[in-house]
């Protein structure tokens, strides 16, 4: 296996890392398997298509997370908070329904046609990285994802909001008794989680082709990553996302048919070996 194949795995892993960290945040705090996470990612990619078409790709990277954060606020205020005492299955089904509606909405706005986003001119083509000619845009994804992951971990570990998020993710009731405003923390978490999904979509837009089913294609993999990483653990999800991306890409070189089952295999092995996931109960 050569270095380019390893970079392919790291690039895919970087994308999965950003996407799964948002889902892990929401799952950790709200306990909701947010089946709309794939739809948020897909919506992010489509909004990025429209924004980058009119105002450039870099602005899209800024606008998309903000737009999706607003969607996250609505999700929290309209669904998650009022229904927080209902069973997780009911909330999961609601998010599943929202995902289906989002898919149809995207078809109504952008149509069923497959779309493509062109990366900024200086990121087109290849660059020489450690002696390997590799697509510049993929290298940029890796760099952005690493910076984002570091910033996220730093935010969770060094700020008061981060402390509150970690506390509420461990035990939301005790956190509330200790004086933490868990409603505000939840709002922040769902908004940031949704923004991360949108950001992943915007990052992915020049990487993959845009079609309304693109969210569903990643959703199962991302749900598996969250479970493998340790439910609710953002750090665990990041490690699992990167690991799975690399393993899947490497397996594709050897046997594409086997690569398809890698996430399921990883899920089975981790659940048998370490039922709480790679990170156990740690949040960051």
């Amino acid at each position: 296996m050569n270095a380019a194949q390893l970079l392919n795995g790291i690039a895919l892993g970087s994308l999965l890392m950003v996407l799964s960290s948002g889902l892990a945040m929401i799952y950790g705090l709200r306990g909701v398997a947010n089946f709309a996470h794939g739809a948020l990612y897909m919506s992010g990619a489509y909004i990025a298509y429209s924004v980058s078409d009119r105002a450039g790709f870099w602005l899209a990277l800024l606008v998309v997370p903000l737009a999706l954060a607003v969607v996250g606020v609505l999700l929290e205020l309209v669904f998650f908070r009022p229904l927080q005492h209902r069973s997780h299955i009911e909330l999961g089904l609601i998010t599943f329904g929202l995902a289906l509606m989002a898919e149809r909405l995207v078809v109504l706005i952008w149509g069923e046609r497959t779309l493509r986003v062109t990366p900024p001119e200086f990121l087109q083509g290849t660059s020489n990285f450690l002696g390997v000619e590799y697509p510049s845009y993929r290298l940029a994804i890796i760099a952005i994802a690493v910076v984002l992951a570091a910033a996220l971990v730093l935010w969770l570990r060094s700020t008061t909001t981060g402390l509150h998020i970690r506390a509420a993710s461990q035990d939301i009731e005790t956190a509330a008794i200790m004086g933490i405003n868990v409603d505000r923390v939840s709002l922040v978490v769902v908004a940031v989680g949704s923004a991360l999904a949108g950001f992943a979509g915007a990052l992915a837009a020049p990487y993959i082709a845009l079609d309304p089913g693109m969210g569903s294609a990643f959703l199962i993999t991302v749900l598996i990553i969250v479970v493998v990483g340790g439910i609710g653990s953002i750090g665990g999800a990041m490690i699992a996302g990167m690991g799975l991306g690399v393993i899947q890409s490497v397996t594709t070189v050897w046997s594409p048919s086997v690569a398809v089952v890698v996430p399921y295999l990883a899920l089975t092995i981790v659940l048998l070996w370490r039922p709480t996931g790679l990170a156990g109960k740690r949040v960051s």
Binding site: N2, A4, Q5, N8, A11, L12, R138, Y207, I208, A209, M214, A217, F218, S249, T252, V253, P256
Partner: peptide, 8 residues
């Protein structure tokens, strides 16, 4: 979605 490994 990702043809990187195939193209390499």
């Amino acid at each position: 979605t990702d043809f990187g490994s195939y193209i390499t």
